[in-house]
């Protein structure tokens, strides 16, 4: 196991050195080994489709020719070793990468039939439609109420105080936090525990009624109990939303998702129904990762 890890590191170092991604000799071999994506990356009812997506940080290619569909009312989990580009790919889906100066995206990503990287596309409504929950809970240093009301207010979703109260309550209920905080809505959101903060962030995301929710390791800062609450929540949210989740926990991927995509060195190696990927991985890299031989 340890020797493979070292190889892995050497490869990544070389990739960074060679700067043109697939350029280095060793990496070429490994890239060949990866080959085209195994499994069917299309689905019957796609909500989002990515075709030929490449992402560059300055000259460094972090995502290479990824094709992937995200199905309606399903949870897809993105797994893979650290630094393989899971977050990068996820952030492409609502153009959060725009906030990084050096980041450049090519290829085509569609939400329904709309190309989100189209020049005419306005990112503001897009990000309301495709919401995001981050790895570290990041509540605003405002009251719990204001944390939730922030999004609806800027999008003008509530005309009266009552409507706003309604939105806040529904969002908190859906995130499974209402009972815990209903008596202290005017206390600071930053004063909650880590798990509560993460659920607050989820409530904040769903308060603007997005259609797709992107979650980047939402449980990495949480203890097992809070994790279980969030996982249950994800399962419920699936009724109304389409969800893509990045996770390092194979068990979590198995528990919450219906499809799984395995990334390696910026490439999408294998994708398929979660139970198949975990019981019967086709690609050697996927198998190595899932059986814990590296990662």
């Amino acid at each position: 196991m340890s020797s493979t890890t070292v190889d892995e590191e050497v490869l990544m170092a070389e990739e960074i050195e060679s700067k043109e991604g697939v350029g280095g000799a060793d990496l070429g071999a490994r890239a060949d080994e990866i080959g085209a994506t195994v499994g069917d990356y299309t689905v019957d009812k796609p909500r989002m489709t990515a075709r030929g997506v490449n992402v560059y940080y300055e000259d460094k290619r972090a995502i290479m020719d990824v094709n992937l569909d995200i199905a309606e009312n399903q949870v897809i989990s993105l797994i893979g070793p650290s630094g393989c580009g899971k977050s990068t790919f996820l952030r492409c889906l609502n153009r959060m990468n725009d906030t990084i100066d050096v980041c450049r995206v090519t290829g085509e990503i569609k939400l329904d039939d709309q190309d989100i990287y189209d020049k005419k596309m306005d990112v503001v409504p897009l990000r309301a439609q495709v919401g995001m929950v981050f790895q570290k809970p990041n509540p605003f240093p405002k009251s719990i109420y204001e944390n939730i009301a922030y999004g609806p207010r800027i999008h003008g979703l509530a005309r009266t105080k009552d409507e706003m109260d309604e939105i806040v309550e529904v969002s908190l209920r859906r995130a499974g936090l209402w009972e815990e905080v209903k008596d202290r809505l005017d206390e600071a959101g930053t004063g909650l525990s880590g798990g509560q903060q993460q659920r607050l962030c989820i409530a904040r995301t769903i308060s603007v009624s997005p259609e797709v929710i992107l979650m980047d390791e939402p449980c990495s800062a949480l203890d097992p109990i809070a994790t279980a609450v969030v996982e249950e929540l994800i399962d419920e949210l699936r009724q109304h939303f389409t969800i893509a989740i990045v996770t390092h926990s194979m068990q979590q991927a198995a528990r919450v998702s219906q499809r799984t995509a395995y990334f390696h060195l910026g490439r999408l190696v294998e994708v398929g129904p979660t139970d198949e990927i975990f019981t019967n991985p086709v690609h050697k890299l996927t198998e190595d990762y899932i059986t814990g031989r590296f990662g």
Partner: peptide, 15 residues
């Protein structure tokens, strides 16, 4: 001010 605050705000579609 941490970048995560900006991310949070942009993430719900704020300008």
């Amino acid at each position: 001010v941490p970048q995560s605050m900006r991310d949070a705000s942009y993430g719900v579609g704020a300008t």
